[in-house]
Nucleic acid binder design. Structure first.
Lengths: 202, 202
DNA sequence: ACCTGAACACCGTTCAAGT
DNA sequence: ACCTGAACACCGTTCAAGT
């Protein structure tokens, strides 16, 4: 089939969106590409590295809105871009969180948050904690939303429905005395989430 | 061998602490109990349910310090207890987070946080977001600590060492205008983390 | 009540060999 | 450069049958 690494990543994104992260196996992906699973190891040394590449591609495909000059406004936009990027693919938040946990992936949102918070005048330790906290917040909460939406559509877990209108209603974060107003974006209108926990951005 | 469900949970905690969550398989656990893997399904309908019971037991074994009367002080203690509970077993934070993500487990910390924030006079939506955010923060950050400590000891991932002195250095959370001071506990002395990402509490 | 034995339908990964 | 074929060492789960 003469696939490129980019073909593999693209197909992986399609499998992810259609069947979810749990069903994104090397064997499944190989079959989808008309290739033996072992062939994938020519392109990626491990599944972890493959997933890292998939997560990076997912983030690249997300929105990249212009950053406001003010650091607190910039933080809001970075977090919103991240949220929209992971919501565009099924299990996107879980994927990015997993890759991050393993210390892989480009981690552009983390770097940008850290740079923004540092540029705001925060001491390095506070900026590190702030960036880490914001990422946990956005990815964790968004993963919850996606997971519960899928559970609801699959009928796997019965749970009272959560409001999916936004992930940081009226929330503020104060890092070492400096305020990040609505740091993780307030309730936004936007199209509602699909029952698969996926939402097209733009 | 005539095991009880409680024997299975106890042994699972031992396996978790010795070999980590990834190596806690039904087959491994069965072997450790001198029993076929299928025997475990007499006690728990699925691995998920087993893990939920293990996570609950882990939380029960954690510290339960008295809650201050003031709601913001109580939040600090609830979060600190949670942190110490999950730090007492290898991969504890990851385990509890996983179980929580699947909507299983007693979720006592979540309920208590929600009750505390609600009692503070927060509107229900803000209390929900606050409880969820605090949990993501504590579990996410603690999981990072444990994971990176293990990675360091195993030499699996090379990464600049993070300071493990605390997980919320000088951090405050403001939910809907009401301040939760040092909500997730500041730097505490306490014994340092072991290289396996585990710390005996008390 | 608790467990065995055997099977089913899967995993990630390695590696010599092919084209 | 990309892939096959075959193997290795695993998974979770089901289910009739044993004690």
């Amino acid at each position: 089939m003469r696939n490129h690494a980019s073909d593999v990543v693209e197909r992986a994104l399609a499998v992810l969106d259609s069947y979810g992260l749990a069903d994104l196996s090397m064997r499944r992906l190989g079959a989808e590409l008309g290739v033996r699973p072992s062939a994938l190891y020519h392109h990626f040394a491990s599944k972890q590295l493959l997933l890292a590449a998939v997560a990076d591609e997912l983030l690249v495909r997300g929105p990249h809105r212009p950053r406001p000059a003010a650091w607190d406004g910039a933080v809001v936009v970075v977090c919103s871009d991240l949220r929209d990027a992971v919501l565009a693919y099924r299990d996107g938040a879980e994927l990015v969180a997993t890759v991050r946990a393993f210390g892989l992936g480009a981690s552009t949102p983390h770097d940008e948050l850290l740079a923004t918070l540092t540029a705001s005048g925060l001491p390095p330790t506070a900026a590190q904690v702030g960036a880490s906290t914001l990422l946990h917040f956005v990815l964790g909460h968004t993963a919850d939303e996606q997971l519960h939406l899928q559970a609801g559509s699959a009928g796997a877990i019965d749970d009272e429905p959560r409001d999916g209108s936004g992930f940081a209603l009226g929330l503020e974060l104060v890092v070492d005395g400096l305020r990040v107003r609505h740091a993780a974006a307030g309730p936004r209108p936007g199209p509602p989430l699909t029952p698969t926990g996926r939402r097209p951005h733009r």
